[in-house]
Each structure stands twice: as C-alpha cells, then as structure tokens.
Write a protein that binds this DNA or RNA. Structure first.
Length: 939
RNA sequence: GCUCGAAUGGUGGAAUGGUAGACACGAGGGACUUAAAAUCCCUUGACCAUAACCGGUUGUGCGGGUUCGAGUCCCGCUUCGAGCACCA
C-alpha cells in the first residue's frame, strides 16, 4: 500500500505534542548538548523553503545526539522586535504587537509541519516583558559598571568613584572615551551633574555625543552594519553623519578579549577572519609633535615609526578639535570653507568621489627627530574616529600620503634603498633603510622591522611617544528613535540619566496612538501620555505629573534590534525564571551553546554583540563561560530559481524556450508554482493573470518549456516557494531529506524541485521494504545474511561520520544506496531494518516513528539508541587488486584480505600476465597500495 | 586595492594523493499494463573504433612543477562569489 504521509505525519505531530516527546529537563546524570539556531524575525511573508534549511540540519544533529545518549536542548523562539512591524504600524495603525503575534502564529504553524524536535515550552519572544526584563536588567548592570584594563574585567562603578575620591584619575587604567585628568579634590568639588558627566566617560553603557548614521527616511539612527554604501539596508534611504547624544555600549573595551576568544572556538576561518578584520587590532606608536612658535602639542598614531625621517607634512582630520587651534588667521577663511564643505558631504558621496582634497592650516609642526618644520594640512582622508585623528605623512611609503603630496606638490623623501617613488609610493614593509639618522638614532642599514623596533625604543626612552595598540572596533550605538523596541529603564532627574530601581523592571512599553516621530522631532515614545516616573510610588505615571522633584520624564529612545538577541541563548536555559536571567544551576548545566547554526550575514553584528554581552555577563558572574557559541556553522542561503516565459513582442503569444530565438521576444517572470520541471502548466498560466486568459502558445514537443535563472528569493520574481506546498505534495520527510540532499550545508544554492522526486521515491521505497501490498508489516525474525549486515553496517559507519561532519547531503545518498542494496537482496530481516529505522530517524522522523511503532519498538524512536558500528561485518575474505604498469591498469588479481604487501608483490611479479607485460623491460619500482592497486613501474 | 572561498557531465553534486563522475535528477531504450499512473531493468562525460563483442584516446577553469600516481599538494594566471575598504 502507498505510504500515506499526510495521515501519518499528522498523527505523529499530534502524538508528539500530546506525549511531550521533545520536552527537555536538566538531568545531571546525562551529558548535555545544546543545539541552537539563530532565532527568526517573524516577517509577514511567512517562511519560504530557505528558512528551514538550518533548522533541519540542526534538528538532525540534535536528534542524532539524543539517540547517542545526550540530553539535548534544542529550543526555538522569535526575535520579535523589528522595523517591518513598526513601518506596517505607521501605515495601517495596527499595533506592532498584533502583527507580530499574527506572524508568529503563522511561523509556528509552518514550523510544526516540518516535524522539528523543538521544546516549545522554552520558547522565548524578545518583545515579551518577561523576556525584556532581562535585557533592561543587563543594560542597567552595564550602566553601573566600568572596565578595568588591569584585571581585564568589568567592575562596579562604585569602585571607580571610590578611586576618584581618594586618588582622582592618577593610577587609572580603565577603558574610557577620552583621557581625563583631575585630582581627588577636583572630583569631590564637582556637583552631581558634573560627576554624572565624568562617569559617562567610563561606564560600559554610557551616553555620548557621537557621530551617528542618521537616516531621515526611517527617522532613526542606524548601526554601521545597518548601512551599506551610504544607504540603509532596510528601505535603501540615504544616511548622513550627524552628531547626537546617544546611548552607547563600550564594546571597544572588550576588543582584545573578543579577538583572543576567536582562537578558542570552532568557527569557520572566514567568519573569524571577518571578525578579526572588524576588530582591527593594530600595534603602533603614538608620538607627540610640538607646534612651531606655540605651546601646543599634538599626538599622532603610526604603525610605521621607522619612517619618521621621511615625514614631509602632517594631516589632521577636518573634525579634529585641533583644527581651530592650529589654523592661522590668514588661513582661517579657507579652512572654514573646507571644513564646512566636508561636513556637507554624505558618506555616500565620499565613497563615490574619492578625489584628493585638503587645505593648509598655516601652522608647522616640529619633527621631534630631525627638528625640521613640517606643514600641517587638513584633509578628509584622515578619519577623526581612528587613532588620534592626526597623522604624520610619509608620502614615499604610503600611497594615500603619496597621492596627497603629488596633488599639492609636497616633498616626497624615499627612505628605503633602491625604491623608486617617481610613479608610486613604496608601501611594502621590506628593504634596507637610508636617509634615516640623527645624532642619536641611526636607522640606516637596518631592515624595516628592525627600525620599527629601534624607533619605538628610542621614542619611548626620550619620552616623546609610547607604544600603543589601536582597535578599529567602535562602541555600539544603543539608541533607536523607534517605538517597537525595548524601552530604556531610565528617567532624567534634572538632566541626569538615572536608572529605575531594579524592582521596577520590566519597564513596559507604553501604548501610543501614533507610531511616527512627534512634530517636535522626538522619538515615537514622545506621544506616550503615561510616560513619567514617580520616585515615591515607584510607578510609571502620567507626564502631566512631572514636577522634577519626585516625578521625572522617562527616556524616549528604545533599544536596537541586537539588544534582545544578545543573550537569548541564556534565557532558553531557564525561560520561565522570574528572579534571574538564568538560574545558577541551569547555567552550570547547559554552560554554552555547543552547536550554533545561522547565516554568515551576522558575522559583524549579532555575533560580535552577543559575544560582548556574554563576556560582560561572565564578568558579572552570570554566564559561566567566556565564549557563548563553541561551534558555529553558517548554512548557505537558498536562492530562488526563477522561471521565464517568452512573449513575442506586441502580441499575446508565448513561445517555448527552444524556439524563442526565431522570434523577437520579451522574457517575463512566471510564478514558479505553476511550472514543473521547467514545463509550464499552460492552463494554470491562463488562469494566473487576467491578461493571459487569451494567451496563445507555440509549443515544442507539445510542451511549453520555460527559461530559468538564479535570483534572490523574492515575491517580485515570483520564485518564492512555500514549504507548505512541498509538504502537501511530498510530505515533511521528503522536504527534510531533499533540503539536505541539495548540496553541502554551508554552500549557497538555488532551490530547484527538479530532483525532489528522487527523495520521495526513496521514502516510498523504504516504506515498501517493511510492508506488503495491504500495508501490513512483513518482517522476518531470521538472522540477517552476511550481505545484509555488510550493507547496513556500511551505512552505520557512513551516516555516523557524515552527521559528525555535517555532511548531510552525502548521508542522504548513503541511505539511498543502502535501501537499493537491501531491496535488491529482498531483505526483510527485522534485525537489519530496525537499525535502518534508527538511522533514518533524525532525517525522516515521521516515517521512522511510524515504522518504529509498527515493529514494536519501545517508546519514541528519538530515544532509540544509535546503532553501533561493527567493523567485522565489512571485512572481506579476498580483495581485488588492480595491476597497473606505469599507472595504466591492465588486469586484476584477487588476494586474501590479510595478505601482506610483500607477499602480494611477490605473487604479482611471479604471475604470467605480469611477465608478459614486463617482457624484457626492467622493473624500476613496485608500489602496493593497500586493498587497491599494485603499480609496477617499468621502462 | 587587500583578505578569504570556489571552479568537476545536460543539471545538483561524490571522491583520507590511489580505477574521476558515487548518489540523484533529466534524457534515451525496454519490461509489466487494454491504457495511464506507479514500479522494475538497461544505457547515459566526450571522442575514436566495431556488424557485434573485446577495445583505444582524451577528460576535473588555464600554464608549469613535485610524485610511480594529482580533481586533491606546490608555484604562476583566468573567471566567479563573499567580506573589508581611505584604519595611517
């Protein structure tokens, strides 16, 4: 009887839910394994076939680990805050919570059909108060912490205050926005507001005036990874630089730990490299330059201290605070005009147009090694935000300085023997130095490497500079001018940002009637009426009660998307705990995510923030491990495969692919759901759009063949494939097998249903091995034959290895081979087939569960012990060797499996056929490749 | 520009330095069937040879190298993809 996947899959979905098959509890008697997928943002479009790829892979691994005896945590939840719901709210007035809820329901319905082993009791949603309580809590902890460089850890801010009271800033080694200097007396004399401002310089969550990516189109600030080429990733609106007071997280304090941690985790080299790049550690030297005829001094950063004798000018970033100080009266109009022009240029324009621009400040700096005067210029090729915002320019050995010097006719002084700088700079860090000596320091004759070290030593000893490590990693901007995000648990006491008492958490998002920014330009929360904090009753009250004595205004910004996604993996460990983010026991049991699956597009966003957040929580003693994700796999994207029909110009006649070149045609996207194997369902096409109702077709071989192309899966290309449709036609098991069969997990590939029949046939074939025509079980208790055992143990070995290597596509092939072999052998042995059921269970859980029940298996197949591989069954009595001469195989010989190489060699050489091939030629070499080949080199 | 990654039949893709193209799709042929569906069997990189069989040559983007032996290792390119991009 046909395998009725619809009825059987439905049956098991119900039974699994009823029996709580996938419920997980901490069990110290068993080893744990934590599998996690990056949780999805529930968009209105629902799931397409690309989304479940990673979920299926991790589900297979989770089920496999469970069968191996691990207590497996495999949770799922929703990253529920996001811009689309908010924009939908602005357009329709529909509350984002309502749309989000609806979308989640739809996601859940789709996910349930695929048969995942998620423990839904542990579901989290970032937008629920019970969840964002802990997002707000972590923020408050960051506000109340500073980062101590000496102990490489976050510490309570109270310790820092104590330090200020006793020593001021002396002896301070902490992460800070800028270097401050004050005495204990000065600190103690400060008023509350001044102290608050000073502490902001050190807090891990702090408010700072920062240049932000302001997106007027979205009315909000965006993180760097939300901006690509000067436009917003969402919506594609232009983004400009604007200075704003924003909440920030001092991610930069953790730069070194974020970098070091990469060496301890099992992630792909490419994503680690991306993160290293993003962190951008650079070891160099900071040097002071005195300004001529002035008391002023400024600091530059360089990685090429060795080139100091080649400095012919200095450059300041236009935004640098030094610009007004160093500009002479004569140059002021020109400098002001330049700075103003630079400010007007958006990021986008600066990328598009990279002309050399700049202006002379009028001042000269004194090269501390040569005593020469060097002109100070201002140019936007120097960035204010990196290093000190000022550089020493060595045009001979830096291509940017070179371009600048050429453009403005400045001196270019080569320092490396034999280099030619007439056409371009010599940037390579190699060669022998020249022109580099003063009375105390002589670099001439040294290599670049030696001179860097020598200069560092000299500069440090002379007190004109110091060794410095810089990071490109910037602090994360943590404010968003949006409604649909976590509110900050912060109120403003006469301008001083103050944390809500911990017992007032969570601070719930207020209801508002309009989701747009207010007329006065405040964020949407400006519309909220109940949005003030009463410090006496400790309640949120109406704004009308604000008296700035006991009732104060609340913060109007909300947190960005990455706030809620930074520690969700901890919450899954203990999702219902209302006293803590995660209990000590749960945390110590689950520790960290053992296997994390998700797209590589989060390399510089979520995966950095989350690691940062976890490190902070570890300093706090909440998380037990330094790195939250021990192993990371980036599944590839599934692209769309679009189909085209070809309309003959100015007609309603469509011509099949093979004949289209005979006409003048326009390709038109056609819905892939009415195309099967690139053949168009003509009737469905006519019904698809009213304008095609009267369409005519020129067919080939009676069929209309469509063209195709690989494009992004999107509605506008009509290439979105909904997993529900596939499941309805083939069943979830086939979908699961096929998604794995498509190709290597980490590779991007187009969705193409052309091969899905093969997987479906496989499922049916397997079903038919167990059942007769009436659908009744027909298994025998007889002992399996040697061939049957060999076949199944080959499979056990292959599938076990493949799962461990995440090579699921080849294990699907292995299943097909095994089932072909066993059905060829007419195998109906229970001993063999029950192993097959256990092996297929992670891949195709529905059919496995049904067969497991039919064969009288105990409990659920997901708890059936993974079959043990026995090598003895694969052993052969004899092995066939190919006999080759100079690499060309001529004939074969059989030998006993345990025969040693020397004996084989002797036998082969004694053989008559061998002799006839050698025939008088000399034998140069004989190579015996175990179990494969004997190659005889003659000549 | 820099840093990674990739390139194998008509297609998706297999191959610890050891018989390249497993497995699957598609295509062609056949069996069963009144017919269709389903199922099963055979052929299927290219080229040459042959009545047929046996066979031969060539073949993993291009050019070199190491090796008895290279899709795999090394050097130099080409093309495509991804990330970073004035980071001093």
């Amino acid at each position: 009887m046909e395998y009725d996947f619809r009825q059987i899959e439905k049956k098991w979905h119900e039974l699994w839910a009823q029996r709580g098959t996938y419920k997980v509890v901490e069990d110290p008697s068993r080893p744990k394994y934590y599998v996690l997928n990056m949780f999805p943002y529930p968009s209105g479009a629902g799931l397409h076939v690309g989304h479940p790829l990673g979920y299926i892979a991790s589900d297979i691994y989770a089920r496999y680990k469970r069968q191996c005896g691990f207590n497996v945590l495999n949770p799922m939840g929703y990253d529920a805050y996001g811009l689309p719901a908010e924009q939908y709210a602005i357009q329709t007035g529909q509350h984002p919570a309502v749309t989000t809820e609806k979308n989640i329901a739809r996601y859940r319905e789709q996910l349930d059909k695929i048969g995942f082993s998620f423990d839904w009791d542990r579901e989290v949603r970032t937008c629920e108060p019970g969840y964002y309580h802990w997002t707000q809590w972590a923020f408050q902890k960051m506000f109340n912490s500073y980062y101590c460089n000496k102990c490489q850890s976050a510490q309570p801010i109270s310790q820092l205050i104590e330090h200020f009271e006793k020593q001021g800033t002396s002896g301070l080694d902490v992460a800070q926005s800028e270097e401050l200097s004050f005495s204990p007396a000065q600190w103690n004399a400060m008023d509350e507001k001044e102290k608050s401002d000073v502490l902001m310089n050190y807090r891990i969550a702090y408010q700072g005036e920062t240049m932000v990516n302001w997106c007027a189109g979205l009315g909000t600030v965006l993180a760097n990874d939300e901006v690509v080429e000067g436009v917003s990733v969402r919506g594609g609106f232009p983004v400009e630089q604007k200075k704003m007071r924003q909440w920030c997280l001092r991610v930069s304090a953790y730069a070194q730990r974020l970098l070091d941690g990469l060496d301890t985790i099992d992630w792909s080299e490419s994503i680690k490299e991306t993160q290293r790049n993003w962190i951008g550690r650079s070891e160099g030297t900071e040097m002071q330059f005195k300004v001529k005829d002035s008391d002023l001094e400024f600091t530059i950063f360089t990685t090429r201290a060795d080139t100091i004798f080649g400095v012919t000018f200095m450059v300041l970033a236009p935004e640098s605070e030094l610009v007004p100080q160093l500009t002479t009266a004569a140059q002021k109009p020109e400098v002001d005009a330049y700075v103003a022009a630079v400010k007007k240029r958006t990021e986008r324009e600066r990328i598009a147009d990279r002309r050399v621009t700049g202006v002379f400040s009028g001042s000269y700096a004194i090269n501390p090694l040569t005593g020469e005067d060097v002109p100070v210029w201002i140019s936007d090729y120097v960035l204010a935000g990196y290093g000190t915002g000022a550089i020493m320019a060595v045009p001979a050995h830096d291509s940017r300085d070179y371009a600048f010097a050429k453009h403005f006719g400045l001196e270019i002084r080569p320092l490396i023997e034999g280099c030619d700088v007439s056409e371009e700079s010599f940037d390579a860090k190699e060669g022998i130095m020249m022109n580099s000596a003063n009375s105390e320091l002589n670099l001439n004759g040294l290599t670049v490497k030696e001179s860097i070290a020598a200069t560092k030593r000299y500069v440090t000893a002379k007190g004109i500079g110091r060794v410095k490590v810089n990071y490109r990693l910037r602090d994360a901007i943590f404010s968003r001018q949006r409604y649909w995000g976590e509110p900050f648990p912060v109120y403003y006491r006469n301008g001083i940002p103050t944390m809500l008492p911990e017992e007032c958490l969570p601070l719930q998002l207020p209801e508002i009637k309009d989701y747009k920014p207010t007329e006065s330009g405040e964020p949407p929360l400006g519309h909220a009426t109940e949005w003030a904090f009463d410090t006496v009753s400790k309640k949120v009250v109406s704004k009308s009660l604000i008296d700035n004595v006991s009732v104060f205004p609340l913060e109007l910004n909300t947190m960005p998307g990455f706030a809620g996604s930074s520690a969700y993996y901890l919450r899954y460990m203990d999702p219902h705990n209302s006293n803590a983010l995660v209990s000590r026991e749960a945390d110590e049991y689950w520790k960290c995510v053992d296997l994390y699956l998700g797209g590589s597009e989060h390399a510089t966003g979520h995966l950095i923030y989350s690691r940062f957040w976890n490190k902070f929580l570890k300093d706090l003693g909440v998380s037990t491990v330094e790195e939250p994700f021990a192993k990371l796999i980036n599944q590839g994207m599934i692209q769309g495969r679009s189909n085209f029909v070809y309309r003959i110009k100015d007609t309603n006649t469509f011509v099949s692919l093979g004949l289209k070149d005979q006409y003048d045609t326009t390709p038109i996207h056609v819905d892939v759901n009415i195309v099967s194997g690139d053949v168009l369902d003509v009737e469905a096409f006519k019904a698809w759009r009213p304008e095609y109702e009267t369409a005519d077709f020129i067919l080939e071989d009676g069929k209309y063949v469509c063209g195709w192309a690989v494009e992004k899966m999107s509605k506008s290309m009509f290439n979105v494939v909904n997993p529900d449709v596939i499941i309805e036609k083939y069943g979830a098991d086939t979908l699961r097998m096929y998604e794995m069969f498509l190709g290597p997990l980490e590779q991007s590939k187009p969705w193409d249903t052309n091969g899905i029949d093969g997987c479906h046939r496989f499922i049916r074939k397997m079903w038919n091995m167990f059942t007769d025509r009436e659908g009744k079980l027909c298994l025998s208790d007889d002992a399996p034959s040697k061939d049957e055992l060999k076949s199944i143990h080959k499979l056990i070995k292959k599938v076990t290895e493949d799962i461990e290597n995440f090579s699921f596509n080849t294990s699907v092939s292995a299943f097909m081979i095994c089932v072909n072999e066993l059905s060829g052998l007419k195998c109906n042995k229970k001993a063999v087939l029950s192993d097959l059921v256990k092996l297929i269970a992670p891949f195709a859980p529905h059919i496995a569960e049904e067969l497991w029940e039919m064969t009288g298996g105990e409990g659920s197949v997901c708890d059936a012990a993974w079959p043990k591989f026995n090598e003895d069954y694969l052993k052969e009595d004899s092995v066939t060797y190919s006999i080759s001469f100079n690499g060309k195989t001529r004939f074969t010989m059989d030998f006993a499996a345990d025969m040693d190489a020397k004996a084989i060699e002797t036998d082969v050489l004694a053989n008559e056929k061998t002799q006839s091939y050698i025939e008088g030629k000399t034998i140069r070499k004989v190579i015996v490749v175990p179990r494969k080949i004997v190659n005889i080199v003659i000549g």
